[in-house]
């Protein structure tokens, strides 16, 4: 005897079952949208400031991080500059639109799409103590001190001790142990 199966109940039941099933195709709560590489490189860059020693006269005033042109790192570097210091120095971020405009800075970052301006950049900073960081395969051979590379999906960095020391900078041996050392 189907005593509970009146139409009203049946319709109610069907509505419940339908409401249970329709959500199967619901849009998931959150998707991606974050550039992880920018954060990773920024953490590396901040670490470089701990393992590389600048001459005494560079240890006062602001610690200047220069970026040539547009860079995916810029936003992260801005955040780093707001929240961190290098010893007692505030971090100041400077964007150079042109390699000829590069002035004295502690670190100079050359994004991959501006790699062909590396030689010009070197000319601009050759009398300074600037750590040149690039992001394209093979650029330590062209004069970069540190070059970000990717090996089996992983962000790594090459370190050319010669190119670092050319600019009167000293490298802590701990950094060498974590880097791919090239000469």
């Amino acid at each position: 005897m189907a005593y509970f199966l009146n139409w009203k109940n049946l319709v109610k039941r069907i509505i419940y079952i339908i409401s249970f099933l329709t959500l199967v195709s619901a849009t998931p709560p959150q998707g991606p949208g974050y550039d992880t590489n920018a954060k990773i490189k920024s953490v590396f860059i901040y670490n470089f400031t701990k393992y590389i020693e600048w001459p005494k006269n560079y240890r006062q005033g602001n610690f200047i991080v220069g970026v040539l042109g547009e860079s995916s790192l810029y936003k992260e570097l801005e955040n780093m500059a707001k929240t961190k210091k290098v010893a007692n120095q505030d971090i100041e971020l400077v964007k150079f639109n042109d390699s000829k405009a590069i002035s004295n800075c502690h670190i100079l970052i050359i994004p991959p799409d501006r790699s062909d301006e590396l030689n010009n950049a070197i000319k601009q900073v050759k009398k300074n103590s600037t750590l040149i960081i690039t992001e394209k395969e093979g650029l330590t051979k062209e004069g970069a001190a540190i070059n970000f590379i990717v090996q089996t999906n992983k962000q790594k960095f090459e370190l050319s001790k010669t190119n670092v020391e050319k600019y009167n900078l000293k490298v802590n041996s701990s950094l060498e142990s974590l880097a791919i050392v090239v000469n």
Binding site: T36, I40, N47
Partner: peptide, 22 residues
Amino acid sequence: AVDIINTLDYDEDLEKLNKSLD
């Protein structure tokens, strides 16, 4: 994975960073 990277401090020790990356 993103959260691991996003919550990294800029100060993170390079060896720890290496493990987090892996």
